[in-house]
């Protein structure tokens, strides 16, 4: 249990998936202009990332390794993720139209979110057990959501600020992300 907490906290604060591992930068910079959409994206990613990591872990352990075809890892994982995203989209649309309205637009974007594939591969590389995989994926997903929401909060304020013309848009967003990343470096000594 303690080990799982260490993995979760480590993934959220110390090795934050966006700010120190640079996975999922595209949605981090793309869908962070408004707080509400950041929350929607965060929830959608948390959901898909956790389930996808568990499924890919099972696929790796029981199909790829058993058949001795580990070299098909990349292609198998991306197919699992793509079909999972499609499946989740269909289920949500049928069962809960409200949730679909809130998350629908973010779901297709998740297939090409490198955070999902990245975490799935890292779980295998670090030879985590099933429970450790659960902890690590959940931690990383929460870390992504945390970074995204904090960042969106700052960007909403930046909209009001008087920024030199050349820095507007992407440059100031990146520099803000740099400052956040420096702040997260402060968690280094935590564990």
């Amino acid at each position: 249990m303690q080990e799982m907490m260490i993995i979760i906290i480590g993934a959220i604060l110390i090795n934050n998936i966006v700010l120190s591992q640079f996975l999922g930068c595209c949605p981090f910079l793309g869908v962070s202009k408004k707080l509400s959409s950041a929350i929607g994206m965060g929830v959608a990613v948390t959901f898909v990332l956790t389930i996808a990591s568990l499924i890919t872990w099972l696929v790796q352990k029981f199909i790829l390794v058993n058949l001795g075809i580990e070299y098909l890892q990349t292609i198998a994982f991306i197919l699992v993720i793509a079909s999972l995203v499609q499946f989740v989209e269909m289920v949500i649309r049928k069962k809960s139209p409200d949730l679909y309205k809130a998350l629908g637009v973010y779901l297709p974007l998740i297939t090409t979110n490198c955070a999902v594939l990245g975490v799935a591969i890292i779980n295998i590389q670090k030879s985590y057990t099933f429970m450790q995989t659960l902890a690590n994926s959940l931690g990383n997903a929460l870390g992504f959501t945390l970074a995204l929401i904090l960042f969106a909060g700052i960007r909403e304020r930046l909209e009001e600020a008087d920024i030199p013309k050349s820095l507007q848009g992407m440059p100031i967003a990146l520099i803000t992300a740099a400052l956040m990343s420096i702040a997260f470096l402060g968690f280094t000594g935590l564990l």
Partner: peptide
């Protein structure tokens, strides 16, 4: 050292984009 730590990546790309914007302007 900060330049090869994670924040350095964001800073460098941010500054380069700002510079290119400036040139464009």
């Amino acid at each position: 050292l900060i330049m090869i730590l994670p924040p350095g990546g964001f800073i460098t790309l941010g500054c380069i984009l700002a510079f290119l914007n400036k040139m464009q302007n």
